[in-house]
Nucleic acid binder design. Structure first.
Length: 474
RNA sequence: GGCGACGUAGCCAAGUGGUAAGGCAGGGGUCUGCAAAACCCCCAUCACCGGUUCGAAUCCGGUCGUCGCCUCCA
């Protein structure tokens, strides 16, 4: 069995065949750093983090590159509003975003090139396109000549005729074709600019990704990723630029994640989905999210559905995911017996291998994380059942190790929520001991009061035959 | 208007020709001083209409609905 990937370019599922055996060159479009990143950005990062982790699990070495667009109108406008330097502002958001990714357990890419630090390569790329008549200069701007790009529109399935027909009023008349797009923009007064053969200016958005791919990964790559909103024009234009220059197919597999949407419950009990946008005032930044929920909650939400579909998110969904997480963690509770053979253990041992097979089969099928999770939940049940039956020792721990390993491939930490709990632990244990004495003395009213008060503080007590366990849930 | 994606139980959702995974919520049990957790059992015919087929959630056509994109500059 091999890994199959849904390729937006062909709209089909294709087996993964890398350019170089055992190596996957993967480029994912990052963010324009003009504001704090939101959970939609996080979704995309998580999706491709899981792709990377799984490819690594299957033995590939993944050369993962993610860009930061750090010069752009939105950044300049924002910097002007705040009275700050655009580059300095952008780097602030870069640093914040990288911290967010760490908090979300997203593995860092191999490199994070910035547009402003790839300027020489970008200019070279543009020069080469001009030289080959794929681009032209007008008043210090440089435009890509779309008519010269073979198969322009093949990714987004549009034709140049459609684009002319559907064009809005006010097309720049200096452009040869309405669909021609800027490779280089002449500087306006007060804007950050770089010297170039065409005069001072800055790069267009699309060219930076083409140039970075060429500089960091070469003429051809295996996987190019991003959100579905980038299919047109961004990725379409990247293809036009790169393939016009190299004459070779650019990315073998184009992967696109669906957009995150906000679900809200209406007064009449029904639900509605909306895109997350500033105008609707429903943007949730990663920072805001992490104040309320553990990072695994967002990851589990992403994993629960297909990466290609729109992702619903809201308070109710997050609460569901938290309970799912608790269930996954329940299988990591220690054994209560030590039976290592016989009917208490045999079903568990059999389950381990079948679960791993189902996990791999699901993930091989275009990273079907929801199917993979279903297999893991069956392992959870098998472990809990075996524990109830008295299983322990090596077979039991092997099952738990498998669960940890496979959830780890998905990037879940299964960590308990609080770190402050560590400091409170001695005090909680003191109360648990006192309560144990009360129960022994059959002072149940007082014992229950202790349990209830601790619950209000976010500490849950569970009485088991082996004694009382406590965990932080708040 | 154009291009594309999608519509599976209260919620999230897997499943692309052979009679619906998984999780949450809900109901009933076991266990427990009572709980909690865990375990067992129950809970859908796949937006609608028509067609192809021995057989369709799964293929084709249509209807309704949801979502994304339709370019910076303007």
């Amino acid at each position: 069995m091999s890994i199959t990937i849904y390729n937006t370019l062909t709209r089909t599922l294709e087996p993964l065949e890398t350019l170089e055996p055992g190596v996957v060159k993967m480029y994912v479009c990052g963010v324009t750093v003009y504001d704090r990143a939101h959970i939609g950005h996080a979704m995309s990062a998580i999706v491709f983090d899981v792709v990377r982790r799984y490819l690594e699990y299957r033995g590939y070495s993944v050369r993962h590159v993610v860009n930061f667009t750090d010069v752009d109108d939105k950044i300049i406008n924002r910097a002007n509003e705040l009275g700050r330097d655009p580059k300095e502002l952008a780097e602030t958001y870069v640093a914040e975003f990288l911290e967010d990714l760490d908090a979300l357990n997203v593995k860092r890419a191999v490199s994070y090139p910035r547009a402003t630090e790839t300027m020489r390569e970008i200019q070279q790329f543009i020069s080469d396109l001009i030289e080959r008549d794929h681009a032209y200069v007008v008043d210090g701007d440089v435009y890509f000549r779309v008519a010269t790009a073979a198969d322009y529109g093949k990714l987004s399935r549009r034709s140049l005729d459609d684009m002319i027909a559907g064009n809005r009023i006010g097309v720049d008349e200096r452009k040869e074709h309405p669909a021609d797009f800027a490779l280089w923009k002449a500087a306006k007064p007060g804007e950050p600019s770089w010297e170039s053969p065409w005069g001072p200016g800055r790069p267009g958005w699309h060219i930076e990704c083409s140039a970075m791919n060429l500089a960091y990964l070469g003429e051809q790559i295996d996987i190019h990723g991003g959100g579905t909103d980038l299919i047109f024009p961004h990725h379409e234009n990247e293809i036009a630029q790169t393939e016009s220059l190299t004459g070779k197919p650019f990315a073998r597999y184009w992967m696109h994640n669906g957009m995150l949407q906000i679900q809200t419950k209406l007064a009449d009990g029904t639900y509605k989905l909306e895109k997350m946008s500033k105008s609707l005032g429903n943007v949730v930044t990663i920072r805001e999210f992490l104040v309320t929920y553990p990072p695994d909650v967002l990851r589990l939400t992403v994993l629960s559905s297909s990466y290609r579909s729109p992702l619903a998110f809201g308070a109710e969904i997050a609460a569901d995911q938290e309970r799912k997480l608790a269930r996954l963690r329940s299988a990591l509770e220690p054994p209560t017996g030590d039976t290592e053979a016989g009917p208490a253990v045999e079903p568990l041992t059999a389950t381990i291998e079948s679960v791993r097979e189902r996990f791999v089969a699901a993930m091989d099928d275009d990273f079907n994380t929801a199917g993979a999770l279903a297999a893991l939940f069956d392992l959870v049940r098998a472990i809990n059942t075996a524990r109830d039956a008295g299983a322990g020792g090596a077979p039991f721990h092997a099952a738990q190790a498998t669960l940890r390993e496979l959830t780890g491939v998905l990037g879940l930490t299964l960590a308990m929520p609080s770190s402050t709990a560590q400091q409170a632990a001695p005090f909680i244990e003191l109360l648990v001991d006192v309560r144990a004495e009360l129960r022994k003395a059959r002072q149940f009213a007082l014992a229950d009061m202790l349990r209830n008060r601790l619950a209000e503080l976010g500490v849950t007590l569970e009485d088991t035959p082996q004694g009382t366990r406590w965990k932080v849930t708040g």
